[in-house]
């Protein structure tokens, strides 16, 4: 995950507090696991500001069923519908389920 983004998110988490904060991601594939891991247990590549920092933020993908169900239909149709066919939805669900189980 981009180092500047790591720094920015760390700052927000420090200011706002982790309690009321949620992360929603939109990566297409392999980047999802890495980003989710970075924002929960810390940067696994040990390169960025989140190395060794366990923010423990709740992390979702915008196309997870439990997330996309909250998006009004018209906006869903315009912004997300086609991506259902492009992204691997079962994999997104299972990747995040695995990380949540481990966390």
């Amino acid at each position: 995950m981009d180092l500047e983004n790591q720094a920015a998110i760390k700052k927000i988490a420090d200011e706002v507090g982790a309690d009321n904060l949620v992360v929603v991601l939109g990566m297409p594939g392999e980047g999802l696991r890495l980003a989710a891991e970075t924002l929960t247990t810390g940067d696994p590549s040990w390169a960025g500001p989140l190395a060794g920092v366990s923010l423990g933020l709740p992390v979702y993908h915008i196309l997870e069923e439990r997330v996309r169900n909250h998006v009004p239909e018209d906006i869903y149709a315009e912004k997300l519908q086609m991506m259902e066919m492009v992204l691997d939805l079962p994999r997104i669900e299972s990747d995040l389920a695995e990380l949540r189980a481990a966390g």
Partner: peptide, 21 residues
Amino acid sequence: LPAGAGDVAATNYRTIAAMAV
């Protein structure tokens, strides 16, 4: 792929195919 950056070409092909659908 090893950097978690996905398969850019494959994702783009799926997007064009989805548009055809």
